[in-house]
Write a protein that binds this DNA or RNA. Structure first.
Length: 656
RNA sequence: GCUGAAAUAGCUCAGUCGGUAGAGCACUUCACUCGUAAUGAAGGGGUCGUGGGUUCGAGUCCCAUUUUCAGCUCCA
């Protein structure tokens, strides 16, 4: 038989050979690092006997596929350790996942101490170095085998497999698990692992079925990679906006105020206001928007016209439910659309008036499920840069393109354009009653969005069932530090709303015509954007968006007056500046300025006060030398006005 | 919403068998008047998330509730 290897070379053998033997034949080192074999594109166990011509790629332990094999084997080792320590635990399933593995057990909850004990037991098992041996049983015998072992979940899994099939098992020296593989040859192949957490999970993900205990862990081919992974997990925790944002005193929550209702401190508010003022000016002065200011609540009648009453009732806060008493039902708004429609309809529009672009810094209320709330990314009240563009159908492509361009400009200025992916959010054709409009409406409007992205060379994915109930969306998605994806910006096309509200314009022939509407955001909601910025910059924001841009540090109280003069001049130049006039040593003040992640701090003492200068230090370069105050002011105002994103000092790490 | 874990000073946390609350940082005051990542001393600060219950006695045990975190997508 001829084995064609990945590099194109060919090995010939007279008799059947296992993948492991072939790896050994090529080189001992390769065999030592081999995890599996890719045979004609399919991942196979190292034990697999090859007996006919094929293409073979030996999968080694530093590849993603190899790591999956290591992690899957590690999950079996963990299951064995759990069975040794907790004989009553029932095993269920234990797959490898993106960055590790888990195994679900039917048992009592595991504490961190339990996890440590399990880790120790796993180390013993790995040291024992048992071979993993694969064997198969006919389905009926396999069921009997697992019944005798007292593993009802495994029995259930086997019963789901087709009758007459051969069921594979792996025996790692006493502990036998039902498994399709592939696995390492020996438990010794696990060089580095860590159990990270435990949580609850349902049998087969069904909340009506048994509650299981899931243990998460990860494994690597060497200790350095594990160390780097654990350091990465620590870094993630440090960046987590929900922790860092509170630590930096940007926002807080209060039990008595309620879930999903964050409060912004002066510092957090200042940052949001900088973003808001920038966006409002940008839209109004450069992108042709007009600004509206509309109510935060309305009668239910409005939402009945818009369709929210039928399609979004669960997501709304209803203020007054006693209709029987003849009172009007009011609801807080979950969106701005119909309010702005009435602004549009206030006077008659000509085709020349379109596109009519309205924007509003709009506070919205959505009654999210209690378990869905998270930090600033999922809240019940939020403020969004929301706008609606009323346009003629022939303007659709141009206007959608402009929306995408504005978003790109905003993300580029925020410095986060590399974080995002585009998604075409479509309706769910199998669940039509959730949506307004028929199949041809959806196909057509989805095609509009697809065309715009393709013409603009945007790479995007498509997702069913992610559309708004009234139309498809271009969603600009970003992941948080834990890899969870959220929509940051959305652009939606709506060809139906106008006729429902009786919106029209007068066309060139003097006839009433129905416009299209684009629902869009330019920066999404401020809460979520702030969270994104905190995590992206790990709190080290570009100077222009910092709440405190400069701090003046007098060497001693003798120079307090000069420090105040410096600050006053900076304030006049619209720089956000404070003075640290405490009677502390300069080293102490510098340390605090650094820990507060300030862009700049100015040290002033005898020399500076005499010359009218400042000694500039920054987060970006460390000491930048002594400059005249005027020079520094022109430097920093230029940086702020142009929204420059200076690069951080690489070597500088926070000490704690 | 469901399941699990957690909640003690502004923050991070300790608090053993149920016996009346503790550290570091921060804060205040005083001394020091300092040149690029922590000066020293003293002091103030707590209905132990909230409401019930058990007990002679509850931060600790039980029940409810609020809030926070994790998971609820990965299927031998």
């Amino acid at each position: 038989m001829k084995i064609t290897l990945k590099d194109g070379s060919v090995k010939e053998y007279d008799s059947a050979k296992s993948i492991y033997e072939i790896a050994l034949d090529i080189s001992e080192g390769l065999a030592r690092n081999a995890c599996a074999g890719e045979v004609n594109g399919e991942i196979k166990d190292l034990r697999t006997e090859l007996n006919e011509d094929c293409e073979l790629n030996i999968v080694t332990n530093n590849t993603p596929e190899g790591l999956r094999v290591i992690r899957h084997t590690c999950s079996h080792v963990m299951a064995e350790a759990v069975k040794r320590l907790f004989p009553n635990a029932k095993i269920t399933i234990g797959p490898a996942i993106d960055d590790g593995f888990y195994y679900d057990f039917d048992s009592d909850p595991f504490s961190r101490e339990d996890l440590d004990k399990i880790e120790d037991e796993m180390k013993k098992i790995i040291k024992e170095g048992n071979e993993l041996k694969r064997f198969t049983l006919p389905r009926e015998e396999a069921i009997k085998f697992m019944e005798e072992k007292g593993e009802p979940y495994k029995v259930e899994l086997i019963k789901d497999l087709p009758e007459g099939s051969e069921i594979s098992f792996y025996d790692q020296g006493g502990f036998v698990d039902l498994c399709a593989g592939p696995h390492l040859m020996n438990t010794k192949g696990i060089k580095a692992f860590k159990l990270t957490s435990s949580s609850m999970a349902y049998w087969r993900g069904d909340s009506n079925k048994a509650r299981l205990q899931r243990i998460y862990g990860s494994a690597f081919s060497n200790k350095d990679d594990l160390k780097a992974y654990l350091a990465h997990l620590e870094d993630i925790k440090m960046r987590d906006h929900n922790k860092l944002g509170r630590e930096m005193k940007l926002f807080l929550t209060a039990d008595v105020i309620g879930q999903g209702l964050p409060l912004f401190t002066p510092k957090g508010t200042k940052m949001i206001m900088k973003l808001q003022r920038w966006i409002e000016d940008l839209e109004d002065n450069e992108w042709g928007y007009v600004r509206t200011r509309t109510p935060l609540m309305a009668k239910s009648d409005l939402y009945k016209i818009s369709g929210h009453w039928d399609h979004y009732m669960d997501g709304m806060f209803i203020l007054n439910k006693d209709e029987a008493e003849g009172k009007e039902i009011m609801a807080l708004r979950p969106m701005t659309c119909p309010f702005q429609y009435y602004v549009y309809m206030n006077d008659q529009k000509s085709y020349r008036d379109l596109p009519y672009r309205m924007s509003e810094t709009s506070t919205l209320f959505r009654n999210e499920d209690s378990g869905e709330m998270h930090g600033l990314t999922r809240v019940r009240q939020f403020t969004i840069t929301e706008g609606h563009i009323v346009l003629r159908p022939d303007q659709t492509e141009e206007e959608l393109t402009r929306c995408v361009e504005l978003c790109n400009y905003v993300m580029k200025t925020l410095g986060v354009e590399g974080d995002v992916t585009y998604r075409l959010s479509k309706w769910d054709p199998n669940n039509k009653e959730k949506y307004l409009g028929d199949e041809s409406y959806w196909n057509q409007s989805q095609q509009y969005l697809r065309d715009v992205m393709e013409k603009n060379g945007i790479t995007y994915s498509e997702a069913d069932g992610e559309a708004a109930f009234y139309g498809p969306k271009i969603d600009i998605q970003a992941k948080n530090v834990y890899g969870k994806e959220d929509t940051m910006i959305t652009i939606q096309l709506d060809c139906e709303a106008a006729s429902k509200f009786g919106m029209y314009y007068i066309d060139e022939n003097g006839n009433k015509a129905t416009p299209y509407i684009i629902h869009r955001t330019s920066m999404g909601c401020y809460e979520r954007t702030l969270a994104w910025l905190i995590e992206h910059y790990a709190g080290k924001f570009p100077t222009w968006m910092c709440a405190e841009q400069v701090r003046v540090l007098p060497i001693s109280e003798k120079y307090a007056d000069y420090a105040e003069q410096v600050a006053a001049k900076l304030k006049k130049a619209k720089v956000d500046v404070t003075v640290d006039n405490r009677s502390e040593k300069i080293g102490y003040k510098i340390r605090e300025a650094r820990l507060d992640r300030l862009p700049y701090w100015l040290i002033v003492g005898e020399k500076e006060a005499a010359d009218g200068t400042v000694s500039v230090s920054s987060r970006f370069e460390g000491p930048e030398g002594t400059k005249s105050l005027d020079d520094f002011i022109s430097q920093i105002t230029e940086e702020i006005e142009n929204k420059v994103i200076r690069e951080e000092v690489k070597k500088e790490e926070e000490k704690q």
